[in-house]
Simulated assay, not measured.
Amino acid sequence: MMRPALLSLCLLLGACTQPALRGSGDLGLVIERANGSVQIIESTGMTALARIEGLGDLSHASAVFSRDQRYAYVFARDGGLTKVDLLTQRIERRIVQGGNSIGGAISQDGRLIAVSNYVPGGVKVFDASTLQQVADIPATALADGKRSRVVGLVDAPGQRFVFSLFDSGEIWSADFSHGNTPQITRFTKVGEQPYDALITADGRYYMAGLFGEDGMAQLDLWHPERGVQRVLKDYGRGQAKLPVYKMPHLEGWAVADNQAFVPAVGRHQVLVMDARSWQQTAVIAVAGQPIFVTARPDGRQLWVNFAYPDNDRVQVIDTQTHQVVANLKPGPGVLHMEFTGRGEQLWLSVRDGEQLQVWDPYRLTLLKTLPAQSPSGIFFSIRAQKMGY
């Protein structure tokens, strides 16, 4: 029989070898695009916890989170889909499911992961637990034998995925509510070259920007029988067809105080729409071509970053007055911004400065900088509880 003192010592030594218990609600993931790596960060102490390598081509990467906020699913440009365990800080599994991918989504119930592909054109769907493929949705075939590239993939209520077909000008809805064989609803002739899309926070409206013409395509998911409508006829490159240095990301739209704030394509403007009628109501002049227009969670501020050559700047806009209230210069190559869940911190990536910055968005002061290798996207696990993220 083991003596009590020896047993206590063994238990103590065993406890020392166990990692400290922690939750996942304040964790996040930072894409390090140049090296195929990600950093796991935590917002409570504003620290980096780990770097994980071997995720492939992260030049246009994004991530979604499991409903328990433990796992991140990273979508790489080379077709890689990687499941990362935020708590054990390791890759759970990685597969290469396509040749050229452009993002993905997790289903409403957290059971399915969908990936949108340029090559081969279409959407592939996987079991979130095992990453085993459960469905393949080929996109419309083109005259040259290839298939349309798929963009703007989002999750929607009712266990659906909605996405756009760039080359064929379509929007599709894939309903997985009855199992792993989806019911596909196709909307054709929605506009020329839908290039990106978003879904409103309540999951009602799917909005696709059109690269080939001015305006946006809107699908009301409460009333799909009405078909796709055209809204914001002035949204686009304009009659002069101004040079576009970087396409804005529509997921960076902000909705606050019943207003939608939209980054104008190729213009030094943020467009304002009434979020009920979807009619344009105002234009806000800004310092450059906006990429992300990100709302503070309380809706009072917008933080805006820009394409080259103004990508060292961030402007802060008051949503009530539409006035620019701060002009910041965080550093060269500001690529992405992310608020913590309650909005007390704003994290931004400064790619060419090789750093992450944490700001107090109320005092407009820099709280901390962290080293990072060519950082781009910042994703906090709170996204797991949001539609379309």
Score class of each variant (00 low, 15 high):
Arg351Ala: 08
Val286Asp: 06
Ser277Thr: 15
Ala326Cys: 08
Arg342Leu: 15
Arg276Asn: 15
Asp360Cys: 11
Arg351Asp: 14
Arg383Ser: 10
Leu364Gln: 11
Pro332Glu: 14
Phe306Ile: 10
Leu328Thr: 03
Gln279Pro: 04
Asp274Met: 12
Thr321Met: 08
Ile378Asp: 07
Asp318Ser: 08
Gly343Leu: 14
Trp347Gly: 12
Val334Phe: 02
Thr281Cys: 07
Val304Asp: 03
Asp360His: 10
Leu366Ser: 11
Trp303Phe: 14
Pro332Gly: 05
Arg296Leu: 13
Ala384Phe: 08
Val304Leu: 05
Met337Cys: 05
Leu356Ile: 10
Gly353Ser: 03
Leu366Phe: 07
Asp298Trp: 00
Leu370Gly: 10
Met337Tyr: 04
Arg296Cys: 02
Lys368Ala: 12
Arg296Phe: 07
Thr294Ser: 05
Val286Tyr: 10
Val324His: 01
Gln289Ser: 14
Glu344Ile: 11
Thr340Met: 01
Pro290Lys: 12
Pro375Val: 12
Thr365Cys: 00
Leu366Met: 12
Arg383Asn: 15
His336Phe: 14
Val325Ala: 07
Val314Ala: 09
Asp318Pro: 02
Gly341Trp: 11
Asp298Gly: 03
Val316Lys: 04
Arg351Tyr: 00
Gly299Tyr: 04
Arg276Met: 13
Ala307Asp: 12
Gln289Cys: 02
Ile291Trp: 09
Phe379Tyr: 12
Leu367Trp: 03
Ala285Leu: 12
Gln315Pro: 05
Gln385Pro: 00
